[in-house]
């Protein structure tokens, strides 16, 4: 699959956490046109905070083939300090330190490689702050 163009398009979100804050306070990493909270169409562009808390998590032990070499790995749903919700892998952390409510920082990491000859995908992963 030729994914390089699709990957390049997402760089502002994946690399720089460029998101939106709507007038009603709703913050989103994914580009939206209308706030799901109030229907507001007014927003400002913001850089989303790279600090947050874990809302839920799991340890993935049967990943899709692209992620097999990382298994087992943790993923978590995170609420950033400015209120954006996102899903991220948790890296460099002991499984026993991953808890609902744990503080995390998001760091730039390699997400996956598209085979031996495809592009390398980067993005953010969470690290538990002890």
């Amino acid at each position: 699959m030729a994914n390089s163009q699709r990957y390049t398009r997402e760089i502002p979100h994946r690399f720089r956490f460029e998101g939106q804050k709507f007038r009603d306070g709703y913050v989103t990493l994914a580009n939206r046109y209308i706030s799901p909270e109030s229907g507001s169409k007014e927003f400002e562009s913001i850089n989303i905070s790279k600090k947050g808390k874990i809302l839920s998590y799991t340890i993935i032990r049967t990943p899709a083939n692209d992620y097999k070499l990382l298994s087992p790995y943790a993923v978590a749903i995170i609420e950033t300090s400015d209120g954006a919700r996102l899903t991220a892998m948790v890296t460099d952390s002991k499984f026993e330190d991953i808890k609902i409510g744990a503080d995390v920082e998001l760091v730039f990491r390699k997400i996956k490689e598209e085979g031996h000859s495809g592009i390398i995908n980067y993005g953010y992963k969470a690290v538990i702050i002890l």
């Binding site: 070499l69 990382l70 892998m89 890296t91 460099d92 760091v107 730039f108 990491r109 390699k110 997400i111 390398i120 980067y122 992963k125």
Partner: peptide
């Protein structure tokens, strides 16, 4: 780490 390479290390240092 399995998710680290010269780019991610450079980004962390440069940050």
């Amino acid at each position: 780490g399995r998710d680290e390479d010269t780019v991610t290390i450079s980004v962390a240092a440069a940050k």
